[in-house]
């Protein structure tokens, strides 16, 4: 290969230059776009920490909102309210999601029904959260004639199900078939094999999926607008309107008062920190899971 065939044109210098130039241009462009994408993230985080941290104080975590015009006040009831709604949502969404994932991975392999359910779950995952909100409003709030924490919990639970279902299925699929056979061969019933062997082996990944679903709905506002509604006071009853952190941030953000804007920033910072903690825990779990799978 030390001679080019006669009939093949020699690459011209200009052509090479053009190709090299194009190559460099694309490299620069892709680096630039990465910077452009990361810039808003950094901007948002920096601004959030700057604005939020300066408005955070102990009262934020211990007080309920102050009336208009009065300084001070906090979001204690919103933080607790978010906790209540998320607990309700997790209690409903996580078991159903995991069970559906178990069906897809352990009972439905290769069946048409399972494929249809898998596809529906993926599509449901993309249904806008506001649609969930008005559906649950139509189902629960219109019937009961009042807004409630329960309605908010159901709306968020429905949003958690498809994510958890799909992660559970994917994680169960990584459990080697030989391990299931070992348990079945010992005369362990299938239900016990699924719960004690498959599910337990896949548990790091499944926990990851649940945390991701949790983190995702923790910041949701739209499904709560017409279900949980929000509340300026303490409320622990499931059939009454309840405050939630994202709702309160929204109300304060579009209000005309500076004091409330400050609280909105503080609330956002708290919300983000809570979600970040969840996501970071997920990362740690996921990494542990990977190591376990390799051994």
């Amino acid at each position: 290969m030390n001679k080019l065939p006669m009939n093949q044109p020699k690459p011209s210098a200009i052509n090479t230059l053009r190709r090299q130039g194009m190559n460099h241009l694309v490299t620069v462009l892709s680096v630039l776009s990465t910077i452009l994408v990361l810039a808003p993230l950094v901007a948002i985080l920096v601004y959030l920490i700057y604005k939020g941290a300066s408005s955070l104080n102990l009262a934020f975590f211990t007080h309920i909102p102050a009336p208009v015009g009065e300084p001070g006040g906090g979001m204690a009831n919103s933080i607790v309210g978010s906790g209540v709604i998320l607990l309700l949502a997790s209690l409903m969404g996580i078991p159903i999601g995991i069970a559906a994932g178990i069906y897809l991975a352990e009972f439905g392999r290769g069946r048409l029904l399972a494929n249809a359910i898998r596809f529906t779950a993926d599509v449901l995952n993309g249904v806008p959260s506001i649609v969930m909100g008005i559906s649950i409003y139509s189902l629960i709030v219109m019937r009961q004639k009042h807004f409630s924490a329960l309605a908010g919990g159901v709306a968020l639970a429905i949003m958690m199900v498809p994510t958890i279902t799909r992660t559970t299925e994917e994680m169960l699929a990584t459990v080697p078939h030989a391990i299931r056979e070992a348990a079945l061969g010992l005369g362990v019933p299938k239900w016990r094999t699924v719960l004690s062997i498959s599910l337990r082996t896949a548990s790091p990944g499944i926990i990851t999926g649940c945390m991701l679903a949790f983190a995702r709905v923790a910041g949701e506002t739209a499904p709560l607008l017409f279900t949980a509604l929000g509340n300026q006071f303490w409320s622990f009853k499931l059939n009454e309107p309840i405050a939630a952190l994202p709702l309160q941030i929204y109300v304060y953000a579009i209000s005309p008062y500076d004091e409330w804007h400050r609280l909105a920033w503080a609330g956002s910072l708290v919300l983000i920190v809570m979600i970040m903690i969840a996501v970071t825990l997920v990362r740690i779990f996921a990494n542990r899971g990977v190591l376990k799978g390799a051994s």
Partner: peptide
């Protein structure tokens, strides 16, 4: 970049 996806919609709105 995945952190961007974890920021709630309402916080984007506030910003």
């Amino acid at each position: 970049t995945e952190l961007l996806a974890a920021i709630p919609s309402v916080v984007y709105g506030l910003w």
